[in-house]
Simulated assay, not measured.
Amino acid sequence: MRLPSLRTALRSAAVLAVAALGATALAPAATARPAPAGQSLSVSAHFGVKPLRAGGAPAATRAATGSTLTVRSSRSTGVVSPNPRVYLVFWGSQWSSDPAGVAADLQSMFRGLYGAQDTWGTILTQYCEGVPKGTSTCGSSGVHVTHPAAAPLAGVWFDNAAAAPSKATASQLAGEAAAAAAHFGNTTQTPNLNAQYVVVSPTGTHPDGFPNTGFCAWHDKTSSSYGTLAYTNLPYIPDLGAGACTTLTDGRLLSGIESTETHEYAETVTDFWPSIGWNGSGGEIGDECENMDAYVPLSTGTFDLQGLWSNSAGACVTQG
């Protein structure tokens, strides 16, 4: 996370930097999804913003170094996600067109983020909740993030009954996260203490002003009658072309969305209801390391996983 004033400055600078990108083609107009029956939604400021620079790559705001993360609350829930569960929500009938193959790629990536072959996910297990505010080393204290023994992908929903808005607002994105919680049967707070809803918008759409609002993606929380929900706004990054939102330059079209979603996934796991989780002077676990990308082999293929800050290593790393 960034403090609001710094985040605002970064976004303002990024807006100017990406002006040359222009807007991608607009999808057909759509009626916004209302909140599910009985829902009232409350949307906070956004966190974990991965900013853009000219050409679509991550903003060069720092080298692949960071600073020690500390926990910002002694709470025993909402600080981290001890048992991560990812729900991919492919929003809108426009997913009948997926020119870059995003849907299959994200499912494959999350199906490989577990077990012995996933050494990237083990970075997260040093972080915990239920320890004093200001803690930087959990040791054996608190409830730690566990490394999944099975794929963290808990569900996939193609919500294609209607078109997604061409320019979804933050409130509409939060409403889609609540709709997903209902769809998957997560209608109390307990399952939503580990669930993160990744709202993936279709090609040609501009959720929260993407890309001219200067971000690759962001994560946030929203309150609902199902409890507080963690969710991510993940635009169709391949619309920006190869090299967008990644530091890798080999022209692979899917690298940017993989890098961005692993950034948001890790930040949601370690700062579940921002910003009471783990933060440093450079931001959340992914903000610290935006200039480090690497191809990492998993059991389901090789993917562009962004580097994460490790307190134990004192550096940005791509394996624990």
Results as ranks from 00 to 15, higher is better:
278 W>G: 05
92 G>S: 10
131 V>G: 00
230 A>Y: 01
214 G>P: 01
101 G>R: 09
279 N>R: 15
124 L>T: 08
72 R>S: 14
141 S>G: 06
38 G>I: 15
313 A>Q: 14
70 T>S: 15
283 G>D: 07
172 Q>A: 00
226 Y>N: 04
221 K>Q: 04
306 Q>T: 07
76 S>Q: 11
211 P>N: 10
241 G>E: 06
174 A>E: 06
116 A>P: 14
106 L>G: 07
220 D>M: 08
48 G>C: 09
280 G>M: 09
241 G>M: 07
24 T>F: 13
210 F>I: 03
188 T>L: 06
105 D>C: 14
320 G>W: 04
198 V>W: 03
250 D>A: 11
294 A>E: 10
238 P>L: 04
10 L>N: 12
238 P>Y: 03
13 A>M: 09
48 G>Q: 09
233 N>Q: 07
286 G>S: 00
254 L>G: 12
69 L>C: 02
179 A>I: 04
104 A>M: 11
177 A>K: 03
101 G>S: 09
14 A>C: 01
101 G>Q: 09
229 L>G: 00
14 A>S: 05
232 T>E: 00
261 E>I: 14
90 F>M: 12
101 G>P: 09
132 P>V: 00
141 S>Q: 05
271 D>W: 06
112 G>P: 14
169 T>A: 02
282 G>E: 13
259 S>G: 13
150 A>M: 09
13 A>Q: 08
288 E>F: 04
217 A>W: 00
139 G>K: 01
320 G>F: 05
133 K>T: 09
21 L>S: 09
137 T>G: 11
79 V>D: 00
84 P>E: 05
276 I>F: 11
319 Q>L: 15
275 S>W: 14
314 G>T: 03
57 A>Q: 12
258 E>W: 12
239 D>P: 00
230 A>L: 01
115 G>L: 05
88 L>N: 09
273 W>N: 15
87 Y>M: 12
177 A>V: 03
63 A>R: 13
184 F>Q: 05
314 G>V: 03
165 P>N: 07
223 S>M: 10
203 T>P: 12
253 L>Y: 14
301 G>F: 02
238 P>Q: 03
128 C>P: 01
85 R>H: 10
314 G>Y: 03
262 T>K: 03
158 F>G: 08
100 A>V: 05
305 L>C: 00
288 E>G: 06
272 F>Q: 12
320 G>A: 08
41 L>N: 10
60 A>D: 14
161 A>F: 11
233 N>P: 07
302 T>E: 12
199 V>E: 02
138 C>K: 02
228 T>I: 11
267 E>S: 12
92 G>I: 04
76 S>P: 10
100 A>T: 06
1 M>H: 14
294 A>K: 10
175 G>F: 02
140 S>F: 02
31 T>F: 02
176 E>F: 08
